[in-house]
Amino acid sequence: MSKTAIIYSYNTQKSKKVAEKIIAAFGEKEIEAVNAEELNKEVLNKYDNFILSAPTWFDGELPNYWDEFVPDLEEMDLKRKSLPFSDWEIRKDTPRIFAMP
């Protein structure tokens, strides 16, 4: 059976809320939560399907914990993995909410 992970930072507010809703909808047996801040290749290799969740910071950038994982992600064989991405605020040019700088 293929395994699904939902990956988000445990330190977030909105990402967390959304993730919890998704987990509840799938049922806890179907989907496992993974803390994005502790992400590495090995963790990722354990799953087949992923739901990634990240807020955008600083005008469309990824938070560091995601950004610093990207070099690994780029080299992984993701051909047979499915990756829906839930981006809460990605609006590169006209972000809706702007916190800073």
Binding site: F58, N64, D67, E68, P71, M100, P101
Partner: peptide, 15 residues
């Protein structure tokens, strides 16, 4: 706080 968390030097070192 969060601007300090985004310290580019710390990030570079982590990488």
């Amino acid at each position: 706080n969060y601007v300090v968390e985004y310290d580019p030097l710390a990030k570079y070192r982590r990488l």
